[in-house]
Write a protein that binds this DNA or RNA. Structure first.
Lengths: 216, 216, 216, 216
DNA sequence: CATGAATGAGCATTCATTCAT
DNA sequence: AATGAATGAATGCTCATTCAT
């Protein structure tokens, strides 16, 4: 069925639609994963139902379980997929960097680029939840990405003997700055990755006075 | 809590809060609120069920609704309670501060103190939930507290004409730093609010070089 | 408490309000009964909650059970109360009547008068339910009243040897006509009990041609 | 029923109603509808729970919602199904009739036939519920059927210029007579639709004297 | 008696997951 | 594989009723 042509009757596959019924096992797997990423990003892991996810692919609900053992498993898959895509890029940055400053700028830019790509891949503009406790949408990928970021930063710090600071706190600060500024950046038009990265990196490296001035 | 009104059908019978009955009602109300704070902190708002909350108090499930109209209402109560306790402290900081640096240090310390108090109030060892996809637990209070923090920071920045920076990004950075360092601080023994606040404020004001050095 | 003065805080006792807290046991009993009649008439027996009823009296919910053992019992009380008030009037009609025609007119007028009084006593304009299956509101009294009516009619018929018709069907017809025309009558302004009774009685006694003509 | 659409997630897979699956689905749908009709007839719409309904089919409770979106929807389905089956028959009567008398007889017979068929479809011995306060059981179909009947009668009356009577009252009377006599008829053995219809129509058209005599 | 908080069964509905086709 | 109907536990919430005060 998934291999035949789509039927007009199928009401699933709305808007963001990865829709259309995929053509084979690999594509189905991808389609489900993408749909899950979308749905998690839109309404969060808890609020997302397996039906929400599978409905977007045009597949039947039972089919979900041919590809993923559970809702939990697909969340894990999304998380580790993101982490694994980010990891080599981070490593490259680490290896290419000559000093901590350069590394920091590089890593922040890489992270910003990554979340921009993710967002574009989703064809989704990130938004705060409509439902009550107006919280940040929970993406399974987010925690994984930050873990990745964290360990990369810590690794670099550990090998830099000139850095006599509290590594855990500094890492935390970098992550906090990246996360929050990254989110604001995504909401702005036009997109300015470099500007945001410069702001973040300068703030961390040289503090408030070093941060770019704006027109009065 | 602080600002939702009781739902008992008829608030007559002996003033409002004297007898053993009224006493007990207040205790139950507190017990439910505390239980809710705990459960939300442990598994997040969405995953928490009203039965989870009430179960912790030993009360019957219907009793929950004698005190709060819905799961959403108790979340709101928790959030606004936290916000309202934080607000005057933030305002005091704002009014007492002579320059941005002083203000920033003050506000960060206030925030750290606040989350320390909250944590103790929860009798809960904060744990980055070992649940499904490791997402950051969503606490109704957290969003409210950060909103409060954000508007306090923006208010101060707006009136400081020397601050020619991107206010939104700077606010985001402050919040990110406070949030992440605050969380690490909570996990450490012994508790060192001043150290953490000094780290965070120095980083933002003067950057990495200004941050306290550690022993090699 | 019910004996002290009413408190401004009490939000119960809306609109139709028999409200005010009754002054003693008998009055409380009456107040609850009246409130129940109102609520049943407004939203029907099933949809009515004991809290709806007691709320209208300003009494506490537990107090309901000092007067009636259950929601079912108060419905029964209302029903039999209505029946017992109607019974002697019907008997008087029966005893005063000389022929079936006179009796029929009398009994229909009595019934119409009764439902008018009931309606006025309720300060309620009868209305079809808002909730979905748009059904006739179910009043516990209605069935009882019709039973009363039915047995009165059957009693008269049984003793009238000239009436060689299917008594059960004729009774049913009288009841059907009375019920439906009575309901339409209640909705009209100005109230015209005699007109409605004449219509109903003439129709039954002499059929369509005997029914009052209207202006063209 | 007749006119609500299925809710299955994807109506593809083999046309619409051929295989054993589709067969079974239709049977379940019918079974649920029938069960609902029974339960509504026995204890009324309000008192009926979805579990009461689904329990009678042996299906699991969640399954109900594979077929109907809510308790309200199935009530609507039952009501409109009945109305839509009755409507064309009533229209045929209207169009075939040459005078009001003929029309009236026809319409009453049609209604009686209809409730007889319905009753058989229910496999239920109609019982004036021995429930709490003896209220007339509220069937979603009943209101719909009477609305249908009412508008058919009013339509005919409006176009008959010789009928100078209070149309609303006359309609009410017809409905009252049909409803009550119909109900008694259902309780009798053997079933005699024509006798009941003759009684009702004659009573309305020519009054008590015209009604069939019985043996002394 | 009156009060109103507490109770817990019950309700409509959702949802992850299973499994016959 | 894919399907989608079936499942039944779980959820938020209501309500008649009880009972300590």
């Amino acid at each position: 069925m998934a291999h035949s042509t789509p039927r007009g009757e199928n009401p699933g596959a709305g808007a963001a639609g990865s829709g259309k019924r995929a053509q084979n096992k690999l594509e189905n797997r991808r389609a489900i994963l993408t749909a899950a990423r979308e749905v998690f990003a839109e309404i969060g892991y808890e609020a997302a139902s397996v039906r929400d996810i599978i409905g977007r692919t045009g597949l039947a609900s039972g089919t979900f379980y041919n590809y993923y053992r559970s809702k939990e498993e697909i969340a894990r898959a999304i998380a580790s997929d993101a982490a694994e895509r980010l990891r080599p890029i981070l490593r490259a940055q680490r290896e290419g960097a000559t000093d901590f400053a350069g590394y920091l700028i590089g890593i922040i830019r890489v992270y910003f680029q990554f979340i921009v790509d993710e967002q574009l891949a989703l064809h989704t503009t990130r938004q705060l939840a409509e439902r009550y406790p107006r919280v940040r949408i929970q993406t399974p990928a987010a925690a994984a990405v930050f873990d990745e970021l964290r360990s990369s930063i810590e690794f670099v710090m550990q090998r830099d003997p000139g850095l006599r600071v509290d590594v855990e706190y500094l890492t935390a600060a970098v992550i906090g700055v990246a996360r929050e500024i990254g989110e604001r950046m995504l909401a702005r038009q036009p997109l300015d990755i470099d500007g945001a990265a410069a702001f973040a990196a300068n703030l961390i490296l040289r503090g408030l006075p070093a941060v770019p001035r704006v027109e009065p």
